[in-house]
Design a protein around this nucleic acid. Structure first.
Lengths: 256, 256
DNA sequence: CGTTGTGTTGATATTAATCAACAAGTGTGG
DNA sequence: CCACACTTGTTGATTAATATCAACACAACG
């Protein structure tokens, strides 16, 4: 697995952004923050980080981390969208999460990656050799603090997803998914509150929500019919009733 | 929520065990380790930790962490079994994990707990005020390293559970559950390899695997009929065919 | 202008949930 | 020691939600 076929780019003398920003509270959904430049390392000599970091661009559809491969590097996504997934031998796929700018990948202690990572669109990452992680953290204690913080946040998000997959209906799952993106947009001021652009297709959404593509499609249709959302095109969702979507997402629906 | 009604015990001058042991590699299932005394803090002045830690005993069935409650403390389980769960407003419950000796609880950055924790049997925990966590980590840098390591491990386990809940059949889920306990027992030498004692009842297993109690019961019956396991009593499972159970757990089953 | 990829909708099958009854323990009190 | 209630687990009958199989619509693209 993981024929990276990424193209490495000459290390720029000063990678301006290692992760896109941690100046504010983390976004509940993706862990990313609105401000610029990671404050965990902003007061550090970035040239020293540049010595170990390689900025790499990955083209859409490329798997750059393969489950089971030796975990040689860890990554920080600096732009684009990544899907993280696990496969069963017969091809069943579960997307465990989507990563955007700011997310660290491949930090776990294991000697092999426990998941695969594939670029959805054009992705840029900062790549660090894992064997230098320990000394990096010694040099930059704030980095370790930041990693612990993000790992904790991801754990909370993972448990929320466990609740979703274990106990929510298809309708509640899609509502949760859309509401998360919508509140994300709200919190991060990325765009108008109620209009959400989806970087992933229906198949990815299905594999993220533990459903089939048909059920996702039908559920979209139903939410449209109920006037909770509008879908001007497959990649754009306009949330018409945030309140209703939120209460559905939280499992308040009387009828399913 | 969380009417703790725990009884606090006078702090012993030297809490011999803060967590039960990290001398070896962590158990893939529960993060606990076989040896004794946490090596993250074993070379530290334990009296200084005793100054902030309160050893507390919790009786079976008591909820000592309530989802949504102010996250004032973090905990380290020192003995007994704990179930961690989230609830939906209509009562649907998802158990996100079971915690045993060695597991840290309540570390996430949020100001409120994102889950509830209930003692299954007689549980003993070390309780620390969260506001002292930062200074604790300053004093004991090894603690922070340990927390990052355990958080990473838990994240890997959570993603494995996401795969289970999103894509595995009832049969595969129960096989995964049993195989994890069985390999846990094997790795930790807690007991004879193939005999597993379950601390939790069928209801807890169902809520952990995203199934109903009836489906869990039927699936047990089926695995028995197939001679993969024997169940001398509800709390004891003897794994008769570890190989078959493992390949079923990993999703290799041709028929479901 | 066909081809391909993506998404939608319909018909049917299947898994697991629900509803219901019962069995096996466990503890209580008479 | 034995009824009794109560909890926990098992099994059966049926239902419901979602998956599967299949057809088609539509847009992007050569």
């Amino acid at each position: 697995m993981a024929t990276p076929s990424v193209r490495s780019i000459t290390v720029r003398p000063r990678p301006l952004v290692i992760s896109p920003g941690y100046g504010s509270d983390p976004c509940a959904t993706c862990g990313s923050r609105a401000e610029s430049v990671c404050n965990a390392i902003e007061d550090l000599d970035l040239n020293r980080l540049a010595a170990v970091a390689v900025v790499t661009e990955i083209e859409p559809g490329k798997t750059f981390i393969g489950e089971g491969d030796p975990a040689t590097d860890f990554y920080n996504v600096t732009s684009g969208h990544v899907k993280l997934f696990k496969l069963l031998p017969d091809g069943r796929r579960q997307i465990t999460g989507f990563a955007q700018a700011g997310v660290f990948l491949g930090l776990a202690g294991s000697s092999t990656y426990s998941f695969s990572a594939e670029a959805i669109d054009e992705v840029r990452v900062c790549r660090f050799p894992r064997r230098k992680l320990q000394s990096l953290m010694v040099d930059f204690p704030a980095l370790e603090k930041r990693l612990l913080e993000t790992a904790s946040n991801e754990l909370v998000a993972a448990q929320e997803q466990i609740l979703l997959l274990g106990r929510k209906t298809a309708r509640e799952r899609l509502a949760s998914f859309l509401y998360a993106r919508c509140s994300h947009a709200l919190a991060c001021n990325h765009k108008a509150a109620q209009s959400v652009t989806l970087a992933m297709n229906r198949n990815d959404i299905a594999d993220y929500l533990g459903l089939t593509i048909e059920t996702v499609s039908r559920t979209f249709t139903r939410l449209k019919a109920e006037n909770l959302i509008a879908v001007p095109n497959a990649a754009t969702v306009v949330v018409l009733d945030v309140e209703a979507l939120a209460s559905l997402a939280d499992g308040f629906s009387s009828e399913n």
